[in-house]
């Protein structure tokens, strides 16, 4: 699968309260949640976003709460994937379980500029900045997690295999 879109840059330690503020968690409806995606980090984000655009962030993306509303909001808003130097561990798990593709690359995170058009080949993990022509490799995904993605997330995996 190939993802292609404009890069939206964010800094280090973007927490789940910035991704989807707790004041909106009285619902889990993706259509509601998406309107507030990244609101406390950049209030204009959702209105500027085109389908397929990509979030590029620094270290520890998704730190804080365990709320799955965070990857749900990002996915529902139309973001195709997230690239970061590193991800907070619960966000990392949740993304695989929910089917939001995420890619870890320190270099890509440091060099891609706001608005660059970026292409990601999900199977190889190669990230290409089409604006600058530069290519980056993302960290390989452990085989178990690849299996989860192939099966369509953790719940589908359980349905298919009868267990984890």
């Amino acid at each position: 699968m190939i993802f292609k879109g404009r890069a939206f840059l964010f800094g280090d330690d973007i927490d789940t309260d910035a991704i989807i503020p707790a004041r909106y968690l009285n619902t889990s409806d993706p259509e509601e949640l998406k309107k507030h995606c990244m609101e406390d980090a950049d209030p204009e984000f959702y209105s500027m976003l085109n389908k397929g655009d990509i979030i590029v962030a620094g270290k520890n993306f998704g730190c804080g709460s365990s709320r799955e509303h965070a990857p749900i909001a990002i996915k529902a808003a139309g973001v195709s994937c997230v690239i970061a130097s590193s991800f907070a561990r619960i966000f990392f798990r949740n993304s695989f379980n929910m089917g939001l593709p995420i890619f870890e690359s320190d270099e890509a995170s440091g060099e891609i500029s706001q608005g660059d058009v970026v292409e990601v080949d999900a199977s190889s993990g190669i990230i290409t900045d089409l604006t600058t022509g530069k290519q980056y490799e993302s960290k390989p995904i452990p085989p178990f997690m690849q299996k989860l993605i192939e099966d369509g997330g953790l719940i589908e995996h359980i349905r298919k295999t009868g267990g984890i």
Binding site: S66, E68, R93, M98, P142, L154, G163, I164
Partner: peptide, 20 residues
């Protein structure tokens, strides 16, 4: 340890969780 809701659903369905 904290997990997301899908992990939690998997645990109440199977009694297990995966962990690195």
């Amino acid at each position: 340890t904290g997990v997301g809701s899908t992990d939690l659903a998997a645990a109440i369905l199977t009694g297990q969780a995966w962990i690195k």
